[in-house]
Design a protein around this nucleic acid. Structure first.
Lengths: 107, 107
DNA sequence: GTCTCACTTGAATGATGGTTCAGTTGAACA
DNA sequence: TGTTCAACTGAACCATCATTCAAGTGAGAC
């Protein structure tokens, strides 16, 4: 199973991968999760409390973000800590993240 | 019927409108249409020839782009000419378009 | 060991979205 | 008028997606 998408390429497949990444981010909940993670890694419980999104639903959304290569997961005892992917953090510009084909900026 | 979305706002509803706009652009065909329109207005026939997308399908996609306020339509005799919305053109940066919440850049 | 917590998975549901088809509108022209 | 062209609309179909529910995993506490 492909677990990540090369979101940073800039060749002829730009449009295709761009649409794929946009599809993942074209959701209020997932966009909010990414914004939360801009301030650093968070556990599912923390995100749940901040966004008031059910843990199960959150888990599904986090899975989508992880499969798109946008976030990474680390296990901390019982908890799971999610963080923005290293590639995103490397290209981060303040409260904006550079996806290659596009830049998402948060207020 | 609401015919356009205020895509340039930057208040607390940023996330919501951002997700809405991203939903519209998270499609290869619509992304390609926007890229074509970066070079100036085009008729449906012209876009059809450039992208090899069926006129009917194109019409549906153009309708979605128009309802999102991303493109405008002008009738030219039998033809319909589509162009990027004035708001987008005003904020245009080369081959990148600034949507407020995010910037889409084409190669 | 059992129990609980934190999270995940998978199935099921309903909703939304992309595509195609058939039919329609509107404009130009004979 | 009738015909043709360019584009549009609406319905239908199928696929995908968001959400919920029930059940499962895995780690710590007892």
């Amino acid at each position: 199973m492909k677990s990540s998408l090369n979101i940073l390429r800039s060749d002829s497949e730009t449009d295709i991968s761009c649409a794929s990444v946009l599809k993942v981010l074209a959701d209020e909940t997932r966009l909010a999760v990414v914004e939360v993670l801009l301030d650093g890694p968070r556990t599912v419980t923390e995100i749940n409390e901040m966004l008031e999104v059910e843990p199960t639903l959150l888990s599904h959304h986090l899975r989508a973000l992880r499969e798109a290569g946008l976030v990474t997961r680390e296990r901390l005892g019982r908890h799971a800590s999610y963080a923005l992917a290293p590639e995103l953090l490397a290209r981060r510009k303040g409260r904006a993240i550079d996806l290659g084909c596009c830049t998402i900026s948060f207020s």
